Amino acid sequence: MATLLAEERRARLRDILARDGALRLDLVAEELGVSAMTVRRDLDDLEAEGFARRVRGGAVAPVLPRPFRDRMAIRYASKALIARKALDLVPLDGAVAFDASTTSGVLLEAVSARDLLVATNSIQNAATARRRGGVRSILIGGELDERTDSFVGTVACRSAAALAYTYFFTSAAAITPTGSWEVSLEEAHVKEVLASRAEQTIVLLDSSKLGRSALAHGLDWSRIDVLVTDLEPQDERLAPYRELTDVR
């Protein structure tokens, strides 16, 4: 019976990490009705299995490639808040680029334009853009990465470079004071090309990704013009980034 309870706890911890991207040890211990030491042991086991990474005061989910549908379910309320804050940055006309992130997808769901061309390496985001009034979409094709549902590779990079964009709206797997981070080199390369062809790059990032890193370095801060998060701009967690870019 004790073993079954332990398995149930760890399953619950995995669910919380998958949903929120992070957890606080004290809050989870109270919620589960167990001691902090018990949760620490559970988190140690989950870290050994690759389901968690221990940090001070809790744990975060490992930064791994995920399909579009799975990513859309994670911290959706935060993505919706970011979209509301970023909506007035989307122009009524011209050409803009959106990456294959679900945060960009949530923003696209709210866009209404006059004659706006949206280029994206996500078939889901291209379809969302096409349904919006006054918006046309171009799918940046290439090799489909089935782990993330995004198009990457040489063809995608060449296609991304074929246009000039007023803005590039992108998210990231993680961000640190050294720049953004992505789950693959291929994903990072496409975003580098899009940023190089855009007048401004706007990063849409939920706060669970702050101070974390992933496999591949993405954009330097010299490439990032605006950082939009689900936090208030004066939040202390954004202090390292206010010196680097416009934080909203």
Rank of each mutant, 00 (worst) to 15 (best):
T3F: 13
T3P: 00
L5S: 13
R9W: 10
R10V: 11
R10M: 15
I16A: 13
L17G: 04
L23S: 04
L25F: 08
L32Y: 12
V34T: 15
V39F: 05
R40F: 05
R40A: 03
D44Q: 10
D45H: 14
G50D: 09
A52W: 03
R53I: 09
R54C: 07
R54E: 09
V55R: 09
R56H: 13
R56A: 15
V60F: 03
P62K: 05
V63K: 11
F68P: 02
R71K: 13
R75T: 13
S78M: 08
A80S: 12
I82S: 08
A83S: 10
R84K: 13
A86M: 08
L87W: 10
D88H: 11
V90E: 07
P91L: 07
D93E: 14
G94T: 05
D99I: 07
D99T: 09
D99Y: 05
S104D: 07
L107K: 07
A110F: 06
L116E: 00
V118Y: 02
T120Q: 08
N121E: 10
T128G: 01
R132T: 06
G133Q: 10
G133I: 09
G134C: 08
L139H: 05
L144V: 15
E146V: 13
E146R: 15
V152P: 00
G153W: 06
A156V: 11
C157I: 00
L163S: 12
Y165W: 10
T166P: 00
T166H: 10
A172V: 06
T176I: 00
T176N: 02
G179Y: 00
S180Q: 05
W181A: 01
V183E: 04
L185F: 15
V193R: 03
S196Q: 11
R197I: 07
A198L: 04
Q200D: 12
I202P: 01
I202C: 01
I202M: 04
L205M: 14
S208A: 14
K209A: 12
K209F: 04
L210Q: 04
G211T: 05
G211Y: 01
R212Q: 15
A214M: 06
A214I: 07
L215G: 01
L215M: 12
L219E: 03
S222G: 13
V226Y: 07
L227E: 03
V228D: 08
T229R: 05
T229M: 14
P233C: 10
R237K: 11
A239V: 04
P240S: 11
Y241D: 03
R242T: 10
R242G: 13
L244F: 04
